[in-house]
Computed example of a mutant assay.
Amino acid sequence: MSSTLAVRVNPPSGNEVSARFSVGKKSFTVRTSANVSLASGATPWLAPGLLAAMRQNAALDIDGPLDSVALTGAEEVQRIMSDWYPAQMHATAILQQETTNETLAGGRGVGCFFSGGVDSFYSTVKHIDEITHLIFIHGFDIPLDNEDLAERTLRTLRKAAEDLGKPLIEVRTNLRQVHALLGLDWESHSHGSLLAHVALLLTDHIGKLYLPSNRIEGELEPYATHPDLDKHWGSRGLEIEHDGNEANRPMKVAAFADSEPAMNNLRVCWWNKDNDYNCGHCEKCIRTMMNIKIAGAEGKCATLPADIPYDVYNRMYINKPGKHGAVENLKAMDDFGYRDAEMERALRDAIDRPTWQNQIFHARQLAGLAPQFAGRLSLENGHRAAVTKVDG
């Protein structure tokens, strides 16, 4: 290890905090803002800085004392991540060992990350009497340059939060883009540390944070959020709990099927064609529409069509998560005693489809999506170029 990744924390400006990440000739500024006050200091930058240093095989140098519990947790994170990804994530030295044991005020609330999806609605409804704040992050799954979709989403989630009787904390950050420029893979390495960064910035408001799980116990594998990992991102003033891995997606939908805020505002789409809140035709939308039918809630969801487009599903490329979802839904039909011959045929076809046929569907899908992919890639590259130009 011959290099150092330096994280230089800037003085806060209103409800925005920022820090400069520098390693070798690369240098970028991460900016995070919110509609509430954010904590200052170095500790919220430990999680994203640590993973960037591990990926760059560099020592980590943060200017400022670090929470003693967070620093101990970072050692456990290093052990786990370097064990999971030995070729990419290298154990490193944290040069800043000055600690702080500042005690935060009591009476703070309980937060839950809230995208409007199946996992976050499940955790919210499950802990509705305990949760005091819901937290949405623009820059997590909606690109920063897509202001239109972000505003559409926020309008709906504000209504959902109001109906649930909880304030919505709205956060904006470019950390995902900076992490990508530093070589981190979003799903495998990065997104858990982004969530930890945001959680630690909100310790003036919350003392506990629920991080909704998207995996079920027994099917867990190395991933950027994980029950063995997330708990180590906390501090003396913040407990982080990975929540919901006792239930799969059909079980989660069944658990909130009678919740009007959930069924009126559910957001699951990964494609968002034409910036639709839910397109109703991508694999994830269709998978969730099946979840809803199996749960006996057909017609209750205001944000998804009631009729499943089996003609689309039967010609659709089914990737690994999609095949897993098909297996999950087929099993749920048995578990829930739901009978639907057309759905069962579609699911079995998706599961048993020959590889060559699935690859043909994949090629056709890519050809059909090429113009929109090209547009999105251009926007993403343009955004990254802008980050490099301004901060490089």
Results as ranks from 00 to 15, higher is better:
residue 208 K to P: 02
residue 2 S to R: 11
residue 73 G to R: 03
residue 272 N to Q: 08
residue 289 M to A: 08
residue 84 W to N: 00
residue 364 R to Q: 03
residue 228 D to K: 12
residue 122 Y to P: 00
residue 368 G to R: 11
residue 383 H to G: 06
residue 237 G to T: 06
residue 276 D to N: 11
residue 81 M to H: 02
residue 378 S to C: 01
residue 366 L to H: 02
residue 10 N to M: 11
residue 120 S to L: 07
residue 299 G to C: 13
residue 74 A to K: 14
residue 276 D to T: 06
residue 334 D to G: 09
residue 217 E to C: 01
residue 205 H to M: 05
residue 155 R to Y: 00
residue 323 K to N: 11
residue 273 K to Q: 03
residue 248 N to E: 03
residue 336 F to A: 07
residue 16 E to H: 12
residue 292 I to N: 09
residue 324 H to Y: 09
residue 104 L to V: 04
residue 108 R to L: 11
residue 269 C to D: 07
residue 280 G to W: 05
residue 227 P to D: 00
residue 250 P to D: 03
residue 5 L to T: 14
residue 182 L to S: 08
residue 297 A to E: 08
residue 242 H to A: 05
residue 182 L to C: 06
residue 332 A to W: 12
residue 341 A to L: 07
residue 85 Y to C: 08
residue 10 N to L: 14
residue 75 E to W: 05
residue 139 G to Q: 09
residue 191 H to Y: 15
residue 100 T to C: 13
residue 99 T to F: 02
residue 292 I to Q: 10
residue 96 Q to T: 12
residue 291 N to H: 15
residue 171 V to M: 09
residue 163 D to C: 04
residue 302 A to G: 06
residue 369 L to H: 04
residue 356 W to H: 05
residue 262 A to D: 06
residue 226 H to M: 03
residue 320 K to T: 11
residue 145 D to S: 10
residue 391 D to T: 14
residue 194 L to Q: 15
residue 348 R to W: 01
residue 268 V to R: 10
residue 129 D to S: 15
residue 122 Y to E: 00
residue 289 M to I: 08
residue 170 E to N: 04
residue 55 R to S: 04
residue 149 L to T: 04
residue 127 H to S: 06
residue 160 A to I: 03
residue 295 A to I: 10
residue 123 S to R: 05
residue 167 P to I: 08
residue 240 I to F: 01
residue 309 P to L: 01
